[in-house]
Simulated assay, not measured.
Amino acid sequence: MQTYLFVHFREKATPDGEQVYFGLSRDGCHWEAVNGGAPVLWAYYGDKGVRDFTIIRCEENGKFYIIATDLSLAYGMRNQYRHSWDEIGRNGSKCLALWESDDLTDWTEQRLVRLGNEDFGCLWAPDIICDREQGDYVLHWSSSHCANGYGPKGIYYSRTKDFRSFTEPKVLYRKDDSGVIDSAIYEEDGRYYLFVKSEANPAKIILLAADHVTGPYERVESFDRSMETVESGLYEAPTAVRLEDGKWCLFLDYYGVPGEGQGYVPFVAESLKSGEFVRADRAFSFPYGFKHGTILTITIEEYERIKGHSWR
């Protein structure tokens, strides 16, 4: 039996919202909070806040890694960023935050991984996938860059085998007519599928496919058709998981209302190849508004260990 861990943050105006939260599910549909809905890990370095999580189980050493955007709006927007998203985009952290664990309950202290040089803007929304062709892991994220005057963002990537040494960043994907953010890559039947938020033309989530992790990627037009009724400019942060019945559940982060009314909305498809996702709100429940995270498939033993752990 497979169960599910959702690593995420919460949309709150106070610093505790931008920390590490866990949600658990036995079926991928009905979710419960861990630690009474309080953070399970805190960021003490960098911006002292973290957002936009990814988590992976390393096949080589069995460890788990959480990686996140190093950013606190609760502190920074009022302080060094002077109430300016443009200031964050240009001068935000060039690091990502990282934790590691052997068992999903006992985690190392946060450390910062510097991936961007001064040519980069803030590093946003990391995601990671195993590249079995190359025998390593591809960590990717969105960023602005001085090459286009810190204009529309692109998706960049770096490779690692040990989660300590990382290669120099390269471009993974750019869209000719808009910026792209919030990348998430999944493998199905030997092909790779890339979800990204397109910032215009359309201002929606789009899906692309490729034969290799780093592309080249081409649009999956059937996905565009399945998203025709989804409102523009209100969804971001795609994350997906393959359920036990083989179907894929795609969660899109709805930000169309202020405050804690925001959170994930589910869509279900028979396969990534089909690109045909159907909204499925009634089949899912969340205890509160989960924000930008990633779902990891876990065992029932790991589920019980997390649920029964005494978080400090």
Rank of each mutant, 00 (worst) to 15 (best):
R82W: 00
R82F: 00
W85N: 09
W85G: 12
E87T: 06
I88G: 00
I88Q: 07
G89Y: 11
N91A: 08
G92N: 04
S93F: 06
K94E: 09
K94A: 10
K94G: 03
C95Y: 05
C95G: 12
C95E: 06
L96G: 08
A97L: 07
L98G: 01
L98W: 01
L98M: 13
W99H: 10
E100S: 15
S101E: 08
D102K: 14
D102N: 10
L104C: 11
T105N: 08
D106K: 15
W107Y: 13
E109M: 12
Q110F: 01
V113Q: 09
V113W: 00
R114I: 00
L115R: 00
L115M: 04
G116T: 05
D119K: 09
D119A: 10
D119T: 06
G121S: 09
L123N: 06
W124D: 02
A125Y: 11
P126K: 06
P126F: 12
P126V: 07
P126C: 09
D127G: 09
I128H: 02
D131S: 14
R132S: 14
R132I: 13
E133W: 15
G135R: 06
Y137L: 04
Y137N: 03
Y137D: 04
V138W: 01
L139K: 02
L139D: 05
L139S: 03
H140T: 07
W141N: 06
W141T: 11
S142Q: 04
S142Y: 03
S143M: 10
S143F: 06
S143I: 11
H145I: 05
H145D: 07
